[in-house]
């Protein structure tokens, strides 16, 4: 069963990649600053899904963290930690693809567009989460404090993702709900979002299992790891 799921995920993502690069039409008005890079708009099929998946990642981490704070089972902490780690990778990739596209399209890698502000703060936030984990030795305290920190992210997130982008006077990104695009492009973007999100959850569950194994006391050398 698991194998079938995994193979269908691979097939789905391969299909998305092929469709994105060969089948989907080029977006109008996105052919670069001087109109010399018409293929550049295809980055939308990777940039947007990565950003959406990293948003899901951080919501997932917050949910696991709140669950941990209620139930206090180490498993929930591993899941939250894994979601942040994998989500951070997605987030970095979304930032990089966005910066590259911004350079091609508007001539600058970075211009503090509201979405860039949000993703920069998100990167800082979850980097901070990981460094807090590194600074606390006792697993119980570490899990508790980092869960509280990630739950705090829920307060900041609506400001970053919804309020501040609407507040801004200018943006390179479409306003939330205001984007219009070609049907075929839309279909591939949605398929890619589904694929990348599933990929994220698969990677996240693997990483959570790894973390659980690392923490389990299978090794007999108790005293070696004394704090």
């Amino acid at each position: 069963m698991k194998n079938i799921l995994r193979w269908s995920l691979w097939l789905w993502i391969s299909g998305v990649i092929v469709a994105a690069l060969l089948w989907a039409p080029l977006a109008q008005g996105f052919s670069g600053l001087y109109g010399d890079a018409p293929q550049s708009s295809r980055i939308v099929f990777f940039h947007v899904p990565l950003a959406v998946a990293s948003f899901f990642a951080f919501m997932t981490a917050a949910v696991w963290s709140i669950l941990y704070l209620i139930k206090r089972h180490p498993k929930q902490d591993f899941h939250a930690h894994a979601a942040i780690e994998v989500g951070l990778v997605f987030c970095v990739l979304a930032t990089v693809t966005g910066a590259v596209w911004s350079k091609v399209q508007w001539g600058k890698y970075w211009n503090w567009d509201p979405r860039q502000l949000s993703i920069a703060i998100a990167l800082l936030f979850y980097g901070a989460y990981l460094s807090a984990r590194g600074a606390i030795e006792d697993p119980e305290v570490r899990a508790r404090i980092s869960a509280a920190y990630s739950a705090l992210g829920i307060v900041v997130a609506p400001f970053l993702f919804f309020i501040m982008p609407r507040m801004a006077s200018f943006s390179l990104h479409p306003k939330p709900g205001g984007a219009e695009m070609d049907r075929a492009i839309g279909t591939v973007v949605v398929a890619a979002i589904a694929g990348f999100t599933a990929l994220f959850y698969w990677m996240q569950s693997l990483r959570a299992r790894m973390l659980a194994l690392e923490a389990s006391d299978l090794e007999p050398e108790d005293e070696l790891a004394a704090p």
Binding site: A122, A132, Y149, V156
Partner: peptide, 10 residues
């Protein structure tokens, strides 16, 4: 500073 700035920046 590492933990507080992302919260306080917005």
């Amino acid at each position: 500073a590492v933990l507080a700035f992302p919260i306080l920046l917005p």
